[in-house]
Every structure is written in structure tokens, then in C-alpha cells.
């Protein structure tokens, strides 16, 4: 780990002003905000991230969960994953979010990890995490080791020839179906912005080192969720090798409303298979207006994976993701 300067800003404005001096807010940033540290400190120990300055935002007043005037939910950036998952309103109205969070990591990690940190969670691709290995995400232009390496855990949706790193977050998959909005306070030149979660994460393309739309100085202050959808049912289903404490091989978040035997509204997202949290408008379109039955559910799953591109070791993820989505939809419509 490299020596770094540790800064505790007096308020969000000061935090933003300091961070705005960074050259980038993406991979290799020289200035980083520190939340729970469960990703960042880990990567610093591995020399994958080597920031010269850390801005500790844990003492800023960003740790509240509040109801918004429209009946939605406002979640502060430093709300711990455990507190969010066990919040009564989240458990009642946004069950998919609660289920997704508790399916991830371990209790100890969830007690530290923050909402904003989880939005920015980095990939678990082992080649990204090892500075001895070429990796386009960590060091642009060095090549991708995993496409020709051990790629069982890697993504099959949204990949490019430069990077196939999986986005590992469970929380983000649930937030995708809940259509969360990410609120960012930037430096005066950009000001505050509200970014729909679907626009927040970037596909790797030719620039896998860029994972989000954040620019230097952009501080995530909170996330909002729209008001609960009456009559909707929500399920998060995560499939993996062992029972607990493992990243998803495939997961599915669904939020579905059925009236008169037909789907009137559907939100579907997949985890463990995409280079970003993978919302599937194709599956949603295949479901809406259709009657709820095995065949239609399977069609939606087929639609969600139509563009999947497997690697040498992970073709099974296509079928696994379909079964994950099919099972989640069946559970939500049973």
C-alpha cells in the first residue's frame, strides 16, 4: 500500500472542492472518496488503486433513510448496507432491494459497506486484482488476460473485446428494477445532477477503465427510489456455487404486476452475467400484456439472454441465467 493523505472535510462542499482537483474519477483516480472501504481499501492493499488522497465522507450527514414527499425513499450515500436491508420500509415496499443486499457479502462487510460504495463496487475479475497481469481496465492498452484465461465467473452480456469484467453488485441489480435515481453533487461548473441508474454505469467498450459517468469532484449524496408500485411483487434470486458469501454466477431481480392473469407491468434485471447491472427491456417487453404461464416466462428468459456472448468456460451461464430469471418470475407470480 502506498502512503496517502487522509482528509476529513467539514462538509460536502469542501469534499467536492478537494475531489474536483483529481485527474479522473475512474480507475487510477489520484483522489478518492472513502466510504466503508470494503472495496477501496482492499484494492489499495493490492496496489490496484493508489490514490494520493482519501477524502473520508463517513462523518458527513449522508447517513439517513427518509421518505420523500412523493412517497418514495431517499437513501443517504453512507447508509450502511445492513441498515438499508433491514429498514422496515425497505423490507415492506422494496423487498427486492432488501433480499439482494442480504444475499451479498457477509454480515461484517454489509455492516461497513455503504450505499454509494456499493454503486461503485469494482469487479472481482482476478486479473484486474493482480497488478502482475495485463488488464485493460486497470491499465488501459495492456490487453485482457481473462478472455484467454480462467473466465468461468466473467460476464456474458455487455462485453467487448477489451473487457468482460462482471459487475459484482447485488444491490445495483435490485435498484435497476426499482428504477433508482442517483443524486450527485458536483463542482460549481456541473452542479447537482440526478442520474437514472440505467444511465449511471457504462459498458466497457474501448474504455473499460471508465465504469460510471462520474467526473472529478462528483460526490454521490443519496439515492432515491420512486414510490412503491401498488400490487407489484418482487423477488431477488441469486445462484452460486456455495450457499453463502459468494458472488453470483447468475442472479435475477424481478418486480412484476399481474392483473386478470396478465402481466401489466414488469421490471427485470440480471446480476452476475453483465458488465453492468443488467436491466432487460427485452424480457420486460416479452412479459407485458402476456398471460402468466411457463411458456411465456421462458420466452422472456430467452429474450433476456438473446445477445449473450459466452467465453470458453462460461457458456453455462446463459442457461443458468435463464433458470434464475424463470424461477424468480415463477416465484413472483405464484
Amino acid at each position: 500500500m502506498h502512503t496517502f493523505e487522509f482528509i476529513r472535510p467539514k462538509d460536502a462542499k469542501a469534499a467536492v472542492a478537494t475531489a474536483a482537483r483529481a485527474k479522473t474519477a475512474q480507475q487510477g483516480a489520484d483522489i478518492r472518496f472513502l466510504g466503508g472501504g470494503t472495496t477501496l481499501i482492499d484494492l489499495m492493499k493490492l496496489n490496484v488503486e493508489t490514490p494520493a488522497r482519501l477524502i473520508d465522507i463517513n462523518r458527513l450527514p449522508l447517513d439517513k433513510i427518509e421518505t420523500t414527499p412523493d412517497g418514495g425513499l431517499k437513501i443517504g450515500a453512507t447508509v450502511r448496507n445492513s441498515d438499508l436491508a433491514h429498514h422496515p420500509k425497505v423490507q415492506r415496499d422494496y423487498a427486492v432491494l432488501s433480499q439482494a443486499i442480504v444475499s451479498g457479502a457477509s454480515t461484517q462487510l454489509r455492516n461497513m459497506a455503504t450505499t454509494a460504495g456499493n454503486l461503485l463496487q469494482r469487479t472481482r475479475c482476478v486479473y484486474f486484482r493482480d497488478t502482475a497481469m495485463p488488464c485493460n481496465k486497470r491499465q488501459p492498452g495492456t490487453g485482457c488476460s481473462v478472455i484467454t484465461g480462467s473466465n468461468r465467473m466473467l460476464a456474458i452480456l455487455g462485453t467487448s473485446e477489451h473487457c468482460i469484467a462482471t459487475n459484482p453488485s447485488d444491490m445495483c441489480v435490485a435498484m435497476a428494477v426499482l428504477e433508482a435515481t442517483i443524486h450527485v453533487q458536483g463542482p460549481p461548473t456541473r452542479g447537482s445532477r440526478a442520474i437514472p441508474i440505467g444511465d449511471f454505469h457504462l459498458l466497457p467498450g474501448k474504455t473499460p477503465e471508465r465504469e460510471t459517468v462520474l467526473e472529478p469532484g462528483d460526490l454521490i449524496t443519496h439515492v432515491t427510489l420512486p414510490p412503491p408500485v401498488a400490487g407489484s411483487r418482487q423477488v431477488y434470486l441469486k445462484l452460486r456455487d456455495r450457499v453463502s458469501y459468494e458472488f453470483a454466477l447468475a442472479s435475477a431481480a424481478v418486480m412484476i404486476t399481474v392483473a386478470g392473469g396478465r402481466v401489466t407491468r414488469a421490471r427485470v434485471a440480471l446480476g452476475g452475467v453483465g458488465t453492468r447491472p443488467w436491466r432487460s427491456p427485452e424480457a420486460e417487453a416479452a412479459l407485458v400484456g402476456q398471460s402468466v404461464n411457463q411458456a411465456n416466462i421462458r420466452k422472456a428468459a430467452e429474450a433476456a439472454l438473446r445477445d449473450a456472448k459466452p467465453q470458453s468456460e462460461n457458456a453455462f451461464k446463459i442457461e443458468l441465467a435463464k433458470r434464475s430469471l424463470t424461477s424468480a418470475l415463477q416465484m413472483a407470480t405464484a
Binding site: V126, A132, S145, G149, S150
Partner: peptide, 10 residues
């Protein structure tokens, strides 16, 4: 790893 011989899931 077949390329560099590292025990990769370490």
C-alpha cells in the same frame, strides 16, 4: 492460469 501458470483463484 494457462498463460502465466499462476494459481489464479488465490
Amino acid at each position: 492460469d494457462p498463460q502465466n501458470g499462476a494459481p489464479i483463484n488465490s
